[in-house]
Structure formats: C-alpha cells, structure tokens
Design a protein around this nucleic acid. Structure first.
Length: 207
DNA sequence: CGACCGATCGTCT
DNA sequence: GACGATCGGTCGA
C-alpha cells in the first residue's frame, strides 16, 4: 500500500484526479479506530469557472478559504445541518479545485463503521453517498484543513487497477442550481459497483 | 419506480 | 431570514 503524495494532489486537471481516485483506498485512523474504504464514486468541482462549486467566481469565505490551499488537504463542510461532506482539495495554491468523495466500498474496520452509523452488517448504504461515507469513516467538519499526507487521514493505492470499461462519467448529483454546468459529466463511478449511491441510478439506465 | 417531505443548523445575504 | 454538493422514510400508481 502506497500513500498518494503531494504531486498527485497538485496536478492541475481536477477531472483526471477525480477519475484516478476511483479504486484508491481512503484511510482514517484516530481515537484508536482504523477504517479503510475503496473509493467507488467521486465528483469534480472545477475551480472558479464551475457554477456548481463553492468557489465559483472566485468567492472566498471563511468556510471555503481552505479550497484555495495547495492540494492535499481536506475540505469538510456541514450540509443540510446534519451531513458532513468530505472533499479532497486539489491543484496549486489559489486554484480552488476539489473532489467530493461520494462512495466507498468498506474494506477494513466494518464493526467500527457499523457503530458509527448505526447500520447493520449487510446494509449496502453504509458507504454510499457523501453523508454516509463521512459518517462511516468518522470524518467531521472539525477535520477540515487537515493534511492528507500525514498518518491519521490519507489516500493510498494498493495495486488495484480499474478496467476502462468499468469507468463511467455522469452528471453530478444535487447541483441543479448550477444552470448549464449541472449537466457536465463530472461525476465518476465504478460501473455496476454495489456501493455506488443508489439514488439517481436512472441516470445510468438512460445512457 | 418516482414524487415528495421533514429533519436540522452553519453560512451567507 | 433563506437555503443547501443529503438521507431515509412515506405515499400513490
């Protein structure tokens, strides 16, 4: 298992990073609890020109400031007052690109994930969807700004190769407010993977 | 299967 | 004071 390094996160093409994160392992280990999940669903938020992004138009607020940091840190924010959404900040300093992690296939620490979420063994919603993913991995807004290059929270590769035929791009979820940008194919999933968020599966059958 | 609804609160206007 | 990069449940066809 090899931890992804700065050079990976600071590539300029956030779409490529979002794609390449599929199949990688997300690791968190804190409070004596280690959990690992394989990333099966991501969404790219592409800098200041992307109407769906919190950084659209170069907007800077206390909350989104971390998006302008150099790639390799976490951007976690509270959505709908109850869900913690975890993004990987990418690009160079002052290029506010980010990748939202939307789905993981649980790999290690299943009992811990079950106790964190209250879900029962066999429930495939455990790591499906950004809110569920963060809850299962123990990620909260207090982790925003945290480095992904340290030991408590990082992404690694283990030799898993994603066949091209299993890579699929679709429009992003829940960004209707973004006008024409809502239709951009910036969501990436591992096709037919059990752990991809089930909502909007109709998008797949339509294709 | 699809449409809709309530929960719940930090952030920005 | 309004509004989410969501989720889980319900209701009707």
């Amino acid at each position: 298992m090899k931890k992804l390094e700065t050079a990976f996160y600071q590539q300029s093409d956030v779409l490529r990073i979002a794609r390449d994160l599929l199949g990688k392992l997300l690791v968190t280990q804190w409070e004596g609890q280690c959990t690992i999940g394989r990333i099966v669903e991501t969404e790219a938020y592409r800098g200041v020109t992307d109407k769906a992004s919190h950084a659209y138009g170069g907007r800077r607020t206390a909350r989104t400031e971390i998006m302008y940091a150099a790639g390799g840190v976490a951007y976690v924010y509270l959505c709908y007052g109850m869900h913690h959404l975890f993004n990987v900040v990418t690009g160079k300093k002052d290029e506010p690109h980010a990748v939202l992690l939307r789905g993981i296939e649980p790999v290690k620490g299943l009992p811990i994930m079950h106790s964190r979420t209250g879900k029962r063994p066999g429930d495939i919603s455990l790591g499906a969807g950004p809110g569920n993913l963060a809850r299962a991995m123990g990620i909260q807004t207090m982790h925003t700004g945290q480095s992904l290059l340290g030991d408590s929270m990082y992404i690694a590769e283990d030799g898993f190769i994603l066949r091209k035929s299993l890579l699929q791009a679709t429009p992003r979820i829940g960004v209707d407010y973004a006008g024409e940008d809502a239709a951009l194919p910036y969501r990436f999933i591992i096709r037919d993977n059990l752990w991809v968020s089930k909502r909007n599966t109709f998008l797949l059958s339509k294709k």
